[in-house]
Amino acid sequence: MQPFTYLRPASLDEALHAASEPGTSVLAGGTTMVDLMRGGLAWPTRLLDISHLPGLADVQTDGPVLRFGALARMADVAENETLQRAYPALVESLQLAASQQLRNAATLGGNILQRTRCPYFRNGVSDCNKRVPGSGCSAVDGEDREMALFGTSESCLANYPGDWGTALAAFDTAVELRSAAGLRTVKFSEFHLPYGEDPAAETVLRPGEIVTAITVRATPAGRASTYLKVRDRQSYAYALVSAAVALEMEGDMVTSARVSLGGVASKPWRSPEAEAALTGRRLSEAVSLEAGEAAFKGAKPRRQNAFKIELGRRVVARAALTAAKRI
């Protein structure tokens, strides 16, 4: 790990001022940042610890907009009774992520900034355009079982690993970013970048900006929602495929559907194709499988990860049927 100066600002204003200095990274729960630094994947010369700042961990779940302070801890938000009742998909995405030790430390703001688990990125030695731009992508001719099916390019096949981010993508979500220059709000669908020329560019977060809150527009679809995650082992693993589904129903007729996919895309992935296949239909097992089919129609499998298409079709279908039971 490269040497760094540790800074503990006393206020958000002080933090925003300090964040603008070149070489500064923000430390919150540390579960991502310390790991990246130890792996040689982040090398700040100044580490700005915002975990003590007051007011940034508040969570508001009443009213027209849900508001999650960036420093709210995953484990605490998973216990929020209003969310458990009205937005089970959000709660399940937290409960099924990581372990309780990590959820006790990890923050919601840091969570959406976590980086891919692609082994070629993490191992620190393989050619990887995310780690060393221009060096190539080792997954193109390598092991691709865990790689993404959507939003990839020949320069990067890596998956976005987050559960919370995948669930957020099913809702009207926004991210509040603050810097010394002020506040800007970015739609969550535009917060993560699709892979373009430079796969190292993952979010629109600018140097000197700090994620201070995540907001979700309240919706009755939250109640009939679920987050289903399928893994190589029963617990404490990243998703092979996951899906968040949120529905509005009249009887067994779907009047509105929200579907997002995890474990299969370069960023949190909304599936308008699956939503269209559900909307206006009477929900049945057959219709749910049609939605799953639609969700993966545009998938680009490699040599070893085509199994995720059939798995994903069933994950979407099962999630839709589970969500519908929660009306």
Binding site: Y6, G30, N104
Partner: peptide, 9 residues
């Protein structure tokens, strides 16, 4: 709260 000492500075 239980946390991991290896990821804590």
């Amino acid at each position: 709260r239980r946390q991991l000492a290896c990821l804590t500075l």
